[in-house]
Design a protein around this nucleic acid. Structure first.
Lengths: 149, 149
DNA sequence: ACCCCAGGTTCCGTAAGGGAACCCCACTTG
DNA sequence: CAAGTGGGGTTCCCTTACGGAACCTGGGGT
């Protein structure tokens, strides 16, 4: 819904929500990441209304998260992640990790992540960019930054 | 809006969205994390309607992400993160990191994160839980897991 | 007895999602 | 060469959820 725009707030979380915070947007991104790139395929996979899917795709393209690319001489298009969008996938992996831990239940995680570098099944683990130690909720202090006006 | 429930999908991202995907929910979580814990304070800080704030807080409490705790003999309450909610903050940090990189502009990031372990300003960096190497969008293969029914 | 909070609840108007039908274009099949 | 098909949307109507403001309630304080 989001009738209030979050983009004006001095908060990177709010601004990020302005880009991918609308309902369905993260799932659309997930689909594109997983290789489901065409309008009808995404629509069928998610069960989203065509109207809303059009709106979301347009918004994600406008925001520079997706690119619309023709894949045929006919007017046929695929959506691809930009660098900006590829970077967002980290957020999806963290969301998936949380869902795996707290919501998956008996059955276990629906999807496994095999890491290219080591070839093993792993999950994403947030670490400090400076020292490499774990960086969780209680491991940080929040300080006003230069853009805190 | 989210009239379609995501929780039934065999996808941890969708299930996570069922918990914190509604508009405002991540910002409410951010406020509680940052120490803004009371109804009126959150309402004033976010500019959210009281009705929606009530709905969101109830939902987050039901989902076990927040706890409602009295802080006075009078009927006064504060909301606190549970372990489940504290674990969600990683997602907020990743969102903030993305917003800092791609949306902050000239002014720079509105908030800085000082890591307790090293005392330095850093940001969250996703790494493989198995080998500790970086784990970004292109560093993984997705495989069906046990709960993929 | 009166007012003042915090923490909601109620009501109404508007905007956004759901679903189905429809449209346009470029083939391709009979 | 007319009819069909399939991708990628657009249009329409209905229902639901948000925004905003007013109102309510229970326990103090003065």
């Amino acid at each position: 819904m989001q009738r209030t725009r979050f983009g004006e707030m001095a908060c990177s979380i709010a601004r990020t929500l302005d880009v991918i915070g609308e309902p369905w947007s993260p799932l659309i991104l997930r689909d594109v990441w997983a290789g489901v790139r065409r309008f009808d395929h995404i629509q069928a996979d998610l069960g989203i209304s065509r109207k809303v899917l059009t709106e979301r795709l347009n918004h994600l393209v406008e925001q520079g998260v997706l690119e619309r690319q023709p894949y045929d001489a006919r007017p046929r298009y695929e959506y691809h992640l930009t660098a900006k969008g590829t970077d967002l996938v980290e957020m999806l992996m963290v969301m998936a990790r949380w869902g795996d831990r707290w919501l998956a239940g008996e059955a276990g995680p629906p999807v496994l992540y095999r890491h290219h570098a080591c070839g093993q099944i792993g999950h994403v683990d947030p670490r400090c960019s400076h020292c490499g130690e774990p960086m969780h909720a209680d491991d940080v202090d929040l300080l006003p930054g230069p853009g805190s006006a």
